[in-house]
């Protein structure tokens, strides 16, 4: 392999392919996270309200989560072609397996007396949801978003196997296909950096959104990793 890291290659490629890959990577991961959150909120609210919906919903998202991304990417390819949707749709589905349980847990954390107090003050179900229950659930939702974003940012790389861009393309096409280690290392490191950066922003967002939560006890994160 010679030198493990060729700094001159990095210097020459800062803008392209490295910069381009980072931007593509962000697009391919942030869009599914946003879509996943949009879909998970109504699903989570529904599952928290009608408890019988929850177990089957959980089974479906868990099974989907187990299906390897590469299989879903290739199955979607003939329909969506080399557009970002080939990666975005499966990745958005995956986030549901993490976000929905967190939203349900978060909504269940709203103490009964708080709910009753809100009703007693004349809040309708929708106002109560938006003004009372969802704010209380924010820490749990953000805890879910943190796990989901790290997982998604790492998984986007696989999309390069079907021909999409992002840091995976740097790893695969610039690196492995040329038997050249430097782009692989750059891709791996930058993916991790992106993941930690987004994670940090989410922590910051939570502090701004929920000033009432004591610092050390950030959102109740679920034990273990997925």
């Amino acid at each position: 392999m010679g030198e493990v890291i060729r700094w001159d290659w990095i210097a020459r490629g800062l803008e392209d392919p490295i910069g381009t890959a980072v931007l593509q990577h962000l697009q391919l991961s942030l869009v599914p996270i946003a879509l996943g959150l949009l879909a998970a909120l109504p699903l989570g609210v529904a599952a928290a309200r009608w408890r019988r919906v929850y177990p089957p919903l959980l089974t479906v998202v868990n099974v989907l989560y187990a299906v390897p991304s590469i299989a879903l990417f290739f199955l979607l390819l003939p329909y969506t072609g080399l557009t970002m949707w080939t990666a975005v749709l499966p990745l958005a589905l995956y986030t549901l397996a993490i976000l929905v349980p967190n939203i349900v847990d978060g909504l269940h954390q709203v103490p009964g007396h708080v709910r009753q107090a809100a009703t007693a003050m004349g809040f309708g179900p929708l106002r109560r949801l938006v003004l009372v229950e969802l704010p209380v659930a924010v820490p749990a939702v953000i805890a879910g978003l943190r796990v989901a974003s790290v997982a998604t940012i790492s998984m986007v790389s696989v999309a390069s196997m079907v021909g999409l861009g992002g840091l995976g393309a740097l790893i695969l096409r610039e690196g492995f296909n040329n038997r050249f280690a430097t782009p692989i290392i750059v891709g791996v490191v930058l993916t991790a950096v992106l993941a930690f950066a987004v994670d940090g922003l989410l922590v910051l967002a939570q502090r701004l959104l929920t000033p009432w939560v004591p610092r050390p006890a950030r959102g109740r994160e679920r034990k273990g990793v997925r």
Binding site: M1, S154, M155, V156, I171, L172, A181, A192
Partner: peptide
Amino acid sequence: LANAARALPTIGVMFLVVLA
């Protein structure tokens, strides 16, 4: 370590090991 490992792209790890 395990949480940090979660942020690594699997294909990167795999291709790096194979290349090495």
